[in-house]
Design a protein around this nucleic acid. Structure first.
Lengths: 211, 211, 211, 211
DNA sequence: CATGAATGAGTTTTCATTCAT
DNA sequence: TATGAATGAAAACTCATTCAT
């Protein structure tokens, strides 16, 4: 239970215990429980005491860490969106070709969705919800802007299909979400082969046609 | 507001009201109001008295037509899903080529989404929600089955890309949803040209590659 | 229980029942219960469910008649302040001499306090409370303004003692409140003779000294 | 903020803290903070953690000095009431004439109210509150008894107006409170002249009439 | 059939008090 | 002794549902 075993202490004095981290533990428990429940039942469908119970704390404790229920969704939204963004950005082949970049993008998002299905579900479910605050919206729009710029740049380079603004990026993102959801609902195979086929199909959708 | 004004009444007594038609009116008003609110604020975010107010009926009246709040969502879900299905099925070129069929499918779904944005939003938002009953799920799965069979048939005919079960249909459906949502959120252009480009991209995604 | 017995009805038809007044009944019960409790235990010391219980209604019912707990105090404050003002104004000898007017004033306030002790207590206890809204404050200040003008007018007529603004009116009002409270707490006799003596003392306090 | 800065410390160890004096400090800080808040927002309107914060101590610390929130109000009530009594008693001209005594009384109470407005406000606001304990009530009643005896004695000496028990003392005390409150609320002038006029009016109210 | 006032369990949130450190 | 995180009962308020009219 004591996660701080192994700390160097001197003179038989009490070890300096990092209370801060223990505190963070509880904050994490709450966020984790809330993520699960919000992903499954939505914001309004989840009661605060329910979150408390799942987190193993008292209802009142939640309000030591968050000012309101809305503050919880926003904290989760911002964190998870950032994490997904980080997962995509990690090792992104900025100097590579479009095909390589598409591969990296699709593959890293699918990996993220496979590894953190609840986070992915949560982000989809709470996208553009009225209880998201300014900061959450900002995180959101920064991602969108980035995607659009990426597409525009390759379009100009005549590597991607010519299409009005937003068409290709919304197609790709929508397709990924659809594919992931289909996997959850057993409407689509989710093996290695499927991912390869999916990615190839996406590439054909966005590439500039032969000749 | 009274749609029966003009009815012949006598001696200041209450007019004889054709209950049958009124009854249907009310049910429709309720469903219509509920659709709007559920689409905008979700199931748990919408209060029954709020639906009543928007429908122009008393709160208690709702329970003469529906046994519970859940019964309302389910009635809407089943109806709208069927209507969307009907919109797609209408004039579907069953004997046509895959390209023609894809065109019809994409075009009719986009038209439906443009004409009934709230219905489309509602269906997306309440997809796979825990309060949907057996019948709603059945309607849902019948659509999926149909789509899969369609894809499988063309795959066997070597017109479509070879891909594991569900990959192509989830890609197409997801892409459409993504495109529609991007349009609502002003992240994508929604003009005629965009639809053409979108459809062309989708076709390249699912067709069997050249050679 | 039916307060509408005796209504004239015709033709054996159902009597026209004034639902409105029945509704008012409940509103009155709530206001009455709240007055008692607020007067005894203060605003923050009184719980809404407690008011509901005393009023003989369910907790939720309160919110059909008032938007919030604060709305209740304000409704009571405005009504009671107005009633006390009306009690003082009724038959006020505007054309009489200062002595007669003082008699009327002291006597009518004491009568009001004797007849509606809870209302008087309530008004004293919630005077200038932070949860009173603009309208309540307005009612309050109009009373004060009136009193000051009254004093000023008689001062100018050299009937009342010369004193800086507010001194005499605050003395009189404070003395009345002190006398009433002392009566409740059995610290002062409250009989006829006491009132006469009190009033005479007040008069000597405010009158212009002999010579 | 640390009043013990400057203490000799060694080797970066915690300084040896003179607990005794600190202890008294904390108790005072708590009482002082609570006085401010209770005076401003009332007993039920003030939260214990709020008191702790204003006092610069931890919430738990409060319960080392007081057994409950009620214990705090009672401690304050008893102390402040005693202090006000002491302020009035100091240099009281027991052998002087009634007029001199009235002057001393009015003047010392007004001075106390001017110097310790929060204490005065607190005492008025919590007068006869249901959470005051036996001892607080005893302090209260002892003051009242004293006042009554004082009045009775002068009445017998035919210096004061003849009036039933409690009438004159409640008038005087009420008038003072009314005058002080009017000053706070800017309804009355509070200068030197006002106090003189006020005191003169009070004297005329209680003195035995000429002839 | 239609109403909408009434209900009370449920919601989010606060706060007096405790207790491990 | 001092702390402040944790508690859980209770606060204000909401809302799905019922039922007398």
């Amino acid at each position: 239970m004591n996660i701080h075993s192994g700390l160097v202490t001197t003179h038989g004095q009490k070890p300096v215990i990092p209370y801060a981290s223990r505190t963070e533990d509880k904050r994490e428990c709450i966020l984790s429980a809330a993520l699960d429940l919000f992903a499954e039942k939505g914001f309004h469908g989840t009661a605060v005491p329910e979150i408390a119970e799942h987190a193993g704390v008292a209802a009142g404790t939640i309000y030591r860490y968050f000012t309101s229920k809305e503050a919880i969704v926003n904290a989760i939204y911002q964190r998870q969106k950032s994490q997904m963004l980080a997962a995509v950005m990690a090792d992104f082949p900025f100097q590579g070709e479009a095909r390589t970049q598409i591969h990296h993008f699709v593959s890293s998002v699918l990996t993220f969705a496979r590894r953190y299905p609840l986070a992915f579900k949560f982000l989809e479910l709470h996208h553009h919800a009225p209880y998201l605050d300014a900061k959450s919206r900002e995180v959101e729009s920064s991602v969108v802007t980035m995607a659009n710029e990426f597409v525009a740049q390759h379009e100009r380079a005549k590597v991607l299909r010519k299409a009005p603004e937003g068409v290709l990026s919304s197609l790709v993102w929508g397709a990924i979400v659809g594919f992931v959801r289909a996997g959850w609902e057993k409407r689509a195979d989710t093996g290695e082969k499927s991912e390869v086929a999916f990615e190839e199909a996406i590439w054909e959708a966005v590439r500039r046609p032969h000749e």
